[in-house]
Design a binder for these strands. Structure first.
Lengths: 331, 331
DNA sequence: GGAGTGGCTGCAACCGGTTGCACGAAACAT
DNA sequence: ATGTTTCGTGCAACCGGTTGCAGCCACTCC
């Protein structure tokens, strides 16, 4: 069995409270005593048990991070940013994957609540109402959804969508399809609203959809049948799936249909044609979210919620091109 | 503050021990009493505090999962498999990312040790010696490294490499480059050994390398300069990076150089040319690893280590083709 | 010489649960 | 009627730490 605080106390001939203070408030203990304790601890391989400490202090020094899909590169970069940043503040981040299931999401939050000091909730699929309720159990920072009274980290995805559509329209596209994301996604609604508001656009919205390669693939026929020349997808995975599907149907990208994704994941850079996309600062979002959360955790009840909005930017590659009339061959 | 066991006890007029038993050993408490307790608990929104429970039982019902890089799709699928499977057994999986840094890896294991019942160590970069030592702190299952006396989940990557090279040789390739993975990777050594043992091969090994797209990209010049017609890369990310680099240098894939990756990630399916690769059963590996770990955790000291080897299989796509003599243009 | 001060340490209660043990009541056997 | 089980519950110690309080000692200051 691993050494406990009592073993160390015995070995160094002091009371457990002195050992405790040696680790959590070193300035309160005499230098000589401290060295003796540290030597004994080192000798026994003692490390304070964080869980036990948490019981009295109420601070676990752990953060929870909940995402819909760990395999989505956008999230994995966000996770990396969060973990690396948290480590510098002596915090650990526990990641959990909900598999896009709101039920699982709620369950995970409940279980995590007691084991972490706060939760980073990324692109939640739960309703605002449920989140408001869960908030009583544990401090939150919500990423990718605007919620009044809570700390948020948002991507300026509305302006990203406008930029993307502006790009399509500057290429002559008017009839544009929007592949929406999953139901319950704030980002998806934000994109949709921004797209609708563009003057002169002839918009067709498909969705809600599963935000995966497969979700995009499944839409290929519908998009091919629709009378559109440009497409904005909820994310790169869907865009890639769509391009795959269109190509299989004999619809050329970008010659017949231009496609824009969102996220800027590696797969988009290596797929052919290279995907035009709206880049999202995923790592920065992870870091920022950790900052806001620790701020919240440190301040306790008195905390004022903060809002961070991160800029997005359009990366033009090869999946978009000028509109060419008469080239569409209806399947 | 969240309700504690004492609140529930008071509300239902029984002793805390009865409440405790209601949750952890329901058959020991009278049906009527139990219902009363459950009602009170429901009413107060009480959920047992797992951390506190762990203090006495020694079971946290959490597992740790350590990977070198969460953003590597191979790992993210492994993680998904592990998390989903663990959830069915009422366990949670906490994921941590070492950023390929052995130092961080050791630190993470130490911190996790007290908070979880066991650790899944995936593709460790640490030395066997250190792992042996850490093993005293917490039960392990090691994925992607063979270690005597420990439970292992392995991919049959040796036979995968043989199959890949067999494929190249059947296309007429003899002078083959191997892009090794990171130092300390068992998988990389396994692949290298298997490749060396193939009769009739003229093998050039590059490495160790960073197992990322960038690592592959960085090798493009060296590979182009080397007198090889076929390449086997440590993983798909490197293969994709290499193809990107070769293409930029004017070396055509597969016409001048054939490239095979390992893992079968999405990016390989959508990149052009579509990547020939050795598929690894990542999700199954995650599930299997959880099984072995729970087995280990349940059995305590008496546990016999188990070994699971999962089959790999070659997927032939467009990045490999017949050797064509005289086509190589030295850059 | 006595009061006051500050530095260090021990004592004991506490965090939120679990569990071996004891005890009372009811059910059963003799 | 008495002895023996069985069942359900309470009591109290314990898990591994933290922390308010009090006490001790050595010093300093009048």
């Amino acid at each position: 069995m691993a050494a406990t605080i009592r073993d160390v106390a015995q070995a160094s001939g002091v009371h457990v409270s002195t050992v405790s203070r040696t680790f959590s408030a070193p300035h309160l203990v005499n230098t000589e005593t401290r060295n003796r304790v540290l030597a004994a601890a080192e000798d026994l391989g003692y490390r304070p048990n964080r869980a036990a400490r948490a019981l009295t202090t109420g601070r676990t020094h752990n953060l929870g991070l909940i995402v819909a899909d760990i395999a989505n590169p956008f999230f994995s970069h966000l996770i990396k940013g969060a973990q690396a940043h948290a480590r510098t503040r002596d915090y650990h981040v526990f990641v959990a994957d909900t598999d896009e299931d709101p039920q699982v999401e709620e369950e995970l939050i409940q279980t995590l609540a007691k084991q972490v000091d706060g939760v980073l909730l990324c692109s939640p699929r739960l309703s605002n109402r449920v989140i408001e309720k869960l908030r009583e159990d544990v401090p939150f920072v919500v990423v990718n959804r605007r919620m009044k009274g809570m700390s948020n980290v948002l991507m300026d995805v509305g302006s990203g969508a406008r930029e993307a559509i502006g790009h399509l329209m500057s290429l002559g596209h008017r009839r544009i399809a929007l592949l929406a994301g999953p139901a319950g996604s704030w980002t998806s609604r934000e994109i949709t609203d921004a797209a609708h508001a563009v003057p002169g656009i002839d918009l067709t919205v498909f969705g809600p959809n599963s935000p995966t390669e497969h979700g995009g693939l499944a839409l290929a026929e519908a998009v091919a049948a629709a009378d559109v020349t440009g497409v904005l997808a909820y994310n790169d995975l869907m865009a890639i799936g769509l391009v795959e599907g269109l190509t299989a149907l004999g619809v050329a990208v970008p010659d017949q249909v231009s496609v824009v994704g969102i996220d800027d994941i590696v797969a988009g850079r290596v797929s052919r044609p290279k995907l035009t996309t709206v880049a999202m600062p995923a790592e920065a979002a992870g870091r920022t979210a950790v900052d806001l959360l620790l701020q919240l955790v440190g301040a306790g009840e008195t905390a004022t919620p903060a809002l961070a909005t991160l800029a997005t930017n359009l990366i033009i590659r090869d999946s978009t091109g000028p509109v060419r009339h008469g080239l569409r061959t209806d399947p």
